[in-house]
Structures are given as C-alpha cells and as structure tokens.
Design a protein around this nucleic acid. Structure first.
Lengths: 244, 244
DNA sequence: AAGCCTTTGTGAATACGCGCACAAAGTGGC
DNA sequence: GCCACTTTGTGCGCGTATTCACAAAGGCTT
C-alpha cells in the first residue's frame, strides 16, 4: 500500500495509529458504560493492550485532548475518535455472498452499533435469493448496481467464493464504491484510489501455526530431504516427500 | 559470516515476512493448479500483490531456492513455504462459541485444506449443545479441558460473545494451548509465550470508514461543535473544552 | 566456449514505528 | 500564592521494514 499523499492539512495520521483508534474507542465505550468520567493514558493503554507512550502519541495526532495531571475525559475522547474515524456519520454497507460467512456478517451486531447500516444482502444462488436473513431479504446479484446506486452504498463486503470475488469487486468499483472489505481468499486488484482491506481466517491460522511450530522446535526437526548437508535440497527429491 | 550461511534456517524470520508467506503460498497453489512449473519473482509478486524485491527478500529468508535467469520452481517453493509455516504437519483446532460466526468457521473450507483439523465445537448454550454442525456435534463447554487433552488441541479459536472470551481464554491456556485466534471484540490478556491473533470485523470496517471519510474531504472541515447539525454525545462539558 | 540475456539475491538508502525519558502543564493542598 | 505531585505531549535514538539498484549467477544461442 502506498503512503498516499495526504495533502489535507497536517492530517497525516499514521496508518498504524488509525488501526488502533477503534481499539481505543472500544475500551473507552467500556469505560463509558461503567460511568468512568476520566481516564489516564496508563489506564486506557492497559485496557487497550498497548504501551502508554504509544497511546499518548496516537492521541496527540488527533489533537491535544488530554489534561496534564488528570488524564482524558472519556466522553470527549469517544467523540473525537468517533469523528476522526468517520463514525459520526452513517455508512451504508452491502454484503455480497450469503454463505455461512455472509450470514454471520449479516447478523453481526458490531456493524449496526457503530453507524454501519447493512443496505442489502446479495447472492448469485437462486436457492438463497429471497430468503430472509437477519431481517433482510437476499436479493439477486444482478441487482448489485441498482442497489448500490439506490442506497448509496459506500462500502462493499465481499464474502463470495474466491472465484467470484474479483468479478464482484470490479462491478462494485465500477459502480463507484471505493472501499472494499474482502473475505474471499484472493488478492483483489483495484484501481488507484480504492481501498481494500482483507480478512483471511486461513492466513491467521497459518501464522499461528508458524509460531506454534517454532515453539515446538522449528521446522526441520527431521530433515525432510535426503542428503541434508549444506546445500539446499535439490528440486527433484521433495516431490516424493510431498506426495508420500 | 559468509554471504551464504548454509542452513540458514534462521529462526529470525521477520514477522512481516511470516505474515506474507501464506499469501505467496496461495498464489503458488493457484499456479500449481494451472500447471505452471516455474515462476519469476516479478510474476509471483504481481499475483500476491507485493513488490518483487520484497518478495525476493522474503524468500531469501527461507534459503536460496530460486534459479537466476529462470525463477522459482513452483512445486518446490510450495513445499518449502509449507514446511516453514508448519503446514506439513496437522494442527488440531477447537472452536469455542458456536454462534453465527462459529458456525461459519466450522464450515470454512480453508481450514481443512491446509492441515487444520477441527477437533470439536463447544458452546455454553444448552440449546446448541448436541446439534450437528458441519458433521461435528457441539459439545458443552464444560468438556473443554477434556477435549483439549484428548485430541491434543494446539490452537483455540474463540468465537464467543465478548464477555465470555477472557474466561474461555484462561481455561484453554491453563490446559496448555499456546495459540489463540480471537474473534471476540476484546483484548485478551495472556501469559508470556502464548500467541494471540485477533480478527475483528468491526475494526476493519472502521478503518475503511476513516479512509472513506478522508477521500470525501476529511472530518470536521468545520468545527463540529454544538449547533453543527449532529448531536454530539454527552452534555455540555466537552463543548466547553472544545472552545476553551 | 564465449557472449548475451534474464533473473535472483542482497548491500545500501530511506521510511516508519516504537518506547524511553523528560520537560511542560495542569491540579490540589496548605 | 506557592509548592509538591501527577500526567500529558514529544524529542530522540533504535530497530524493523521497504524499496532501489546492481553485481553475481545461471541458461541459451551461436
């Protein structure tokens, strides 16, 4: 991802900071529910699982919203972060692909609670079209463009099989959508100016497996290839290992 | 040190590299299906959506597996990456929390296809216990420790409501699990040596909203203080703070 | 075998993110 | 009003990640 030129003022909030703001926000709303009025960077950092200096630096990118000697006013900070993240306005979301995952997403409470409104569910499978899921009727994918225009969809959630994802992506982008959340296990290619974020369960598991393996002693406890001397194993031999 | 550290199965593979290896692996298996025998770093990088120099450097951490002037042999590279990630062995997974998301996870094909075996599904809800989901019968959460020990679970997937997640996490960690994939919207605290990865749909959407908002002109070009249209949360206090 | 062409592997430069440590700023007590 | 105490905001150094650019290495052709 390119560090896009951010000409807007001094609003160059680091990407790493942006990624943490939602975490802070969640911790803060938790405090709000417990009616805590103010919180120190130390406390909030602990709740968010980060270093307190990092938290202060992150917040300093939004402005100077703390009070030295006291801390941050919870409610005020919630509002500032929400505004920075764009959560003070509503975002219209379309979920494309109503398989197991799409269904789970449609029923996910975390959407509505933060200003994300699911305008519609779409699928190509005639057997699914027409079904009612979480209070919404599944529409046919043919009506994708229509729905995007009609409801003003600005974020598309792609939960289709891998093979259909790029095609769907092209269509939503052609319809003017510039933000895509992709659950399909493919790398989507999009034109400049379109943001894609990817969630991939399989990749997360593989990363965990790597660390788990390392804890257990790393790869090559056994040498998987004969003649494991100093040279890298030749290409011819591993095939047996793989197919064995 | 010689430029070629033979057997540089250096445990110091950068985290950023590890996170990309599964992406390369997926691109490679795609090539395998199309029966492509060799691939250049340029082509593979394009398929994985990264810079080719980065790809080469990533692969160089695993060893010197390419041929200059030719590229990488697809099948060989698939094997090497799989081995490095620990996918040449089976990993036993337990899914805790069988709501919408847990159900979707249970049926997710990406698990089984990479050596992840779902040993069991667990839930606290008596109405769900006993149901059959994707060929597995849901067990009661009381049998968590028993199941972990019996099946040798090494990765726990937590898909419970937020409130239950930390408790479940403590229990799986106490049972010896050292890798956790957390879907619950909470920050889990775990002892040293336990890896936690988090997937949070809501956070991803919020990050997209931030960028979407910025594309549209950024937050609060005008001061979003009282009278500005929306009702900011909370009474009068922070309004003063804004203007002060 | 020699030369040309392609592509890898990597040194070097740059950018970025993190966390320490501390001065500045504000609060509360007396 | 002054002082002691708390906590923010940030300068700075360090380590990691990314990208460029090129020499080395291999194959292919003649």
């Amino acid at each position: 991802m390119t560090p896009r030129q951010n000409r807007q003022r001094d609003r160059g909030i680091p990407e790493a900071t942006v990624a943490r703001l939602p975490v802070y926000l969640r911790a803060l709303t938790g405090l709000q529910e417990r009616e805590v009025a103010t919180v120190s960077s130390e406390e909030l950092a602990a709740a968010a699982g980060v270093n307190s200096a990092k938290l202060r630096k992150d917040l300093s990118h939004l402005g100077s919203y703390g009070t030295r000697g006291v801390g941050y006013e919870v409610e005020y900070l919630v509002y500032q972060i929400s505004r920075e993240l764009g959560l003070t306005q509503d975002w219209v979301v379309a979920i494309i692909g109503v398989g197991n995952l799409g269904r789970a997403l449609a029923g996910y409470g975390g959407f509505a609670s933060r200003g994300f409104r699911v305008a519609g569910l779409l699928d190509a499978d005639e057997a699914i079209v027409g079904q009612e899921i979480s209070g919404k009727t599944v529409a046919h994918i043919d009506r994708l463009e229509e729905m995007i225009a009609e409801h003003g969809v600005s974020i598309a959630v792609i939960a289709t099989p891998a093979g259909a994802a790029q095609g769907v992506c092209d269509r939503v982008v052609a319809s003017g959508v510039t933000s895509v959340l992709n659950f399909a296990p493919v790398v989507l290619s999009v034109p400049e100016g379109v943001d894609v974020r990817k969630v991939d369960l399989s990749i997360e598991l593989q990363i965990l497996a790597f660390h788990e393996q390392r804890k257990a002693g790393g790869p090559g406890d056994y040498e998987p290839v004969a003649g494991g001397g100093e040279d890298p194993p030749g290409p011819a031999q591993y095939v047996e290992a793989v197919e064995a």
